[in-house]
Design a binder for these strands. Sequence first.
RNA 1: CGGAGUGUGGCUCAGUCUGGUAGAGCACCGCGUUCGGGACGCGGGGGUCGCAGGUUCAAAUCCUGCCACUCCGACCA
Length: 438
Amino acid sequence: MRLSRYFMPTLREAPADAQIVSHQLMLRAGLIRQEAAGIYAWLPLGLKVLKKIEQVVREEMNRAGAVEILMPTLQLADLWRESGRYDAYGDEMLRIKDRHDRDLLYGPTAEEVVTDIFRSYIKSYKDLPKNLYNIQWKFRDERRPRFGVMRGREFLMKDAYSFDVDEAAARKSYNRMFLAYLNVYARLGLKAIPVKADPGPIGGDMSHEFMILADTGESEVFAHRDLVEMGAPGPDVDWEGDLEPEVARRTSLYSASDEMHDAARFDAMPEDKRMTARGIEVGHIFYFGEKYSKPMKAHVTGPDGKDVPVHMGSYGVGVSRLVAAIIEASHDEAGIVWPQVVAPFGAAVLNLRAGDAGCDAACEQAYKALADAGLDPLYDDRDERPGAKFAAIDLVGIPQQLIIGPKGLADGVVELKTRATGERQTLPLDAALKAVIG
RNA sequence: CGGAGUGUGGCUCAGUCUGGUAGAGCACCGCGUUCGGGACGCGGGGGUCGCAGGUUCAAAUCCUGCCACUCCGACCA
């Protein structure tokens, strides 16, 4: 993409409304534009990042055996009356009437819809387990939206729903999601830890929140250091096998956010294993048994010929929140430092003297080579001063920057800068291209 | 929802207390000089000061109502 033809409205100063660094940088780098409290338009750069995160989430869900669908944003109130949640949900639900005066709502979540889909088709225990997910916009009319897309009213969520014949089987589904989530965050370059969450009315030990560690996180988390260092299980998990040991390795180590913190247990650990950090919640998984299947009559026939309500769990990842969370975890004074996997452009070419025949030719050559290599390069071909180009590309956080100017070219070299480390190499164009393309 | 605050060109803000021809920096347009970390000079365009009423000879400024947004708290992907 040639920057001269692109739409990347960067700001030198952060709008006064933005308090936290990710919100400021998202506005300054031209990722989003606020349309109303907690409601944002996604500009080209922001949309690219959002789609890349979405794709990572999608791939890990598929790998773990979940199947993607797409459910509507608008849902019928009648379904929610069946589950009893229409009245229970309160003012956070945006209620709408259509022209026939029929009650609709903008979905804050999709248990009812997915249960309705499930019960229409699945009748036998032999068809279980099933896990259906979608990546769709949600709306929760928060009392107080804040921090940009970190707590918006409209947000993009991946929500998966598992269906099993009994609790033991549901636990296996839960374990798959538990490990898949760790893989998602690891691929996004984040340090994530599962913390025990309030399981709600069902009880038990099957509810976890996933916190990513960032100095500016909203909540305080306490954890055994090994839990962080253990990292993610990786893609080679045997998803059909027994995942309990792999999950137990993690859940047996202490971790809690401040509201669930047990200081006595924490202090009982060796001092060098105690870790206190700030965290941002970016995922929540839980098992809720028959809570929806019972009232909504989502039954399957078991091996004994009797109908039983299915056991369900749901698994959410805040995709739009992850954009902000990654920035919170990865930025510096100059701007955003995107991990390569979610960077809006894989590499940038900076033409320090647009209009100079030598610079133009070298940049065009570099741009084409990077594009041919599939790196989706951004070429700053604008007639701007070098300083403005350095500042803009650093602000939007492009990982690899090929800096091409008349001084270097006179010596037959260009500069290759790595955004994350600030490291610069001076080398001939061919060698620089080789280094970037690999 | 309780408390606090803010609305003035695209952005950051001054001007409001004490009513009297709407300002600055950045951004934008033109010309020139420049050109390796957000240049400089000259010239220029753009705002019915959130909205609606009211007071007044005169309202960004005073009064009333409304709206929007932000922050703190209780709740949450």
